[in-house]
Design a protein around this nucleic acid. Structure first.
Lengths: 196, 196, 196, 196
DNA sequence: CATGAATGAGAGTTCATTCAT
DNA sequence: GATGAATGAACTCTCATTCAT
């Protein structure tokens, strides 16, 4: 594939991403993409045959942007306290929970509602499991340092992740206030951290 | 409205509920409803103008079926331990988390993704807040009894509710195993209950 | 199905027949039918989902119009000479061979080229076999009367039928002159009839 | 035109021939040809502007391959019996009638149905007339030898040719059995040859 | 009230054809 | 010559919605 062709693909993915962020997955039609990209009807089909394929690539692009597990772990200074890092992680999550204009969350849920994938081949699940590993090792370190209570690290990690998923959904379907999110994030830290 | 008319509405809502459970919200068309009900195209429009209206009534019907706060509270024996009741509550939630065939969860999320409603008029939020109240008072009782750790009751309640929401989504988008759900429910109890 | 609905189907079949006669099978689109009938795009789909189905019904209608074997045989006077009847049959075939404006021949061939059907379920073959039977019994009678040479009746019948098929095709693909057709029909009679 | 250019044309014609054999005339698109040849879309248009032109050249190539009248006549030993030669001719025809995978028959019919050509410029008709001449002279020789009945040679030739056309069509639209073809070929010989 | 035929807007998809490189 | 990206016309098909009966 040529550079030009790649550039066009990139354009399509970027414009599609915007559409998915704004309208979710099911609302976006091939026609929408065509119009958003300013290309011809047939032109789009040179690159993608349906929104399903486009979405999967948008999602892959999104995940690429985040870097992988080792990448993340390597950026953490060895001497940083677990609490600090977890705090940083939660702050990032908070942004995502409240970000309703530039997030693929809704589209992603819609996509996987419609195209359910078994765990083995599910990219969402793969991300989740990766996060469990990362967060789990952080928690383990915290426990070893005596900063955190002695809990099962992976279970505690999943607890945090399910909770943030729940808040993402709630923020998008129930109009949950920022204050309530903050309380929850504090609650996590309180239950986890040894406070003398 | 006549009895006959009411019966017809009831039929429409029941059949629509089945469709929403099976296919989600966005997939269901007026045509689907017409066919599922065995009524005429025009006939349906006498009662509902779109799936939006139908869904809202299906949802209202669903909530009516559950009874309201006072109803729930009145069924709890005064001397039941908080832990027991919370355990019961969690068992109910577990059923819902794992129930993928007879649940409106996906359709509900899809609906509110598409038709976002501010907190004040949002029936989902209303339910949530009700649940916070119920669960919050239970937790409060548990704290007063010395069964539970001293936490902010409403915050702890929301923690449980967000967590279960997160697991509902995860079960429907990431193919989460039952075992992991069980671990989480145990984790909640562990973090909340004074043992020893 | 109501009378009105049947009338509409009839209209569709008639207009479609004209289109098939003029343009063959593959050239005719659902859009063509819609326009020829003066109905709406969606309207046509209430009755037929594709030109395949329309064509099969047009063909069935055509065959209904011809009456069946018994019908044909009963119209032949018992004392008519075999030669006379076969002559009549050939005259009819000649009309069909030369009829290029009101005939489904081309469309039919195109249809069965594209949708090949095994003998057992092939309406064209069914017609052919019926014709073999009719023509075969006529020839048999001719032989018994001493009017015709002693040949295998069914084989001779098929000979006539394949020959006329061949001329139909030739007339439509090679621009065969009427004179040549006449010669062939005479040739059949000459080879078959005992001329003292 | 350069050698390279000719080679490209040859490639196009060969691959197109395969497509026409398999799919008929109308089903084959310029896109199909491009893909079958592994050349570029624009590249094809340097040589042919439409499938019409391609098909005509494929057909011309096919006919070139068969050799012409004089060629055929020269291969017949002077002392061969007419019956033997006609028998050979019919055997060849039988092959063609039953050959459904490597034959242009269907495509040819489809082509001339769609693009009807008057006798004067019709290559199919030209072939037909050539065959009438060849077969006619053979029959004439047979008559002169006393091997065949005294019929009009050209008419008898056309009879055979129309019959085989009819069987080609029938084999491709009505699923005619091999046995029936054999009977017909025997029938021709029986009606033509003086026995005893 | 109830029916179901009819409409027309709109999405999907495929290709012949062109054209800048 | 050759490429293949791009265009746009044409067709298929599905529904929400209306309306005469």
């Amino acid at each position: 594939m040529s550079d030009k062709s790649n550039a066009k693909k990139q354009l399509i993915l970027e414009r599609s991403r915007e559409l998915f962020c704004k309208n979710g997955y099911q609302q976006v039609t091939m026609k929408d993409v065509v119009e958003a990209c300013g290309i011809s009807r047939g032109g789009l089909y040179l690159y993608y045959n349906n929104t399903h394929d486009i979405f999967l690539e948008v999602l892959a692009m999104e995940n690429d942007g985040l870097g992988d597990e080792k990448d993340f772990m390597s950026r953490i200074p060895n001497d940083a306290s677990a609490a600090k890092i977890i705090g940083y992680f939660l702050k990032e999550e908070k942004k995502e929970i409240l970000n309703k204009t530039d997030s693929l969350t809704v589209a992603t849920y819609e996509f996987f509602f419609k195209h359910f994938m078994p765990a083995g081949e599910n990219p969402l699940r793969k991300n989740f499991d990766t996060s469990v590993e990362i967060l789990g090792s952080l928690i383990l370190r915290g426990i070893e340092n005596g900063e955190l209570y002695d809990v099962d690290p992976r279970t505690a990690a999943r607890n945090i992740l399910f909770l943030t998923e729940g808040m993402k959904i709630a923020a998008r379907t129930m109009d949950i206030e920022k204050k309530i999110i903050d309380q929850q994030l504090m609650y996590i830290i309180d239950t986890l951290m040894v406070t003398e």
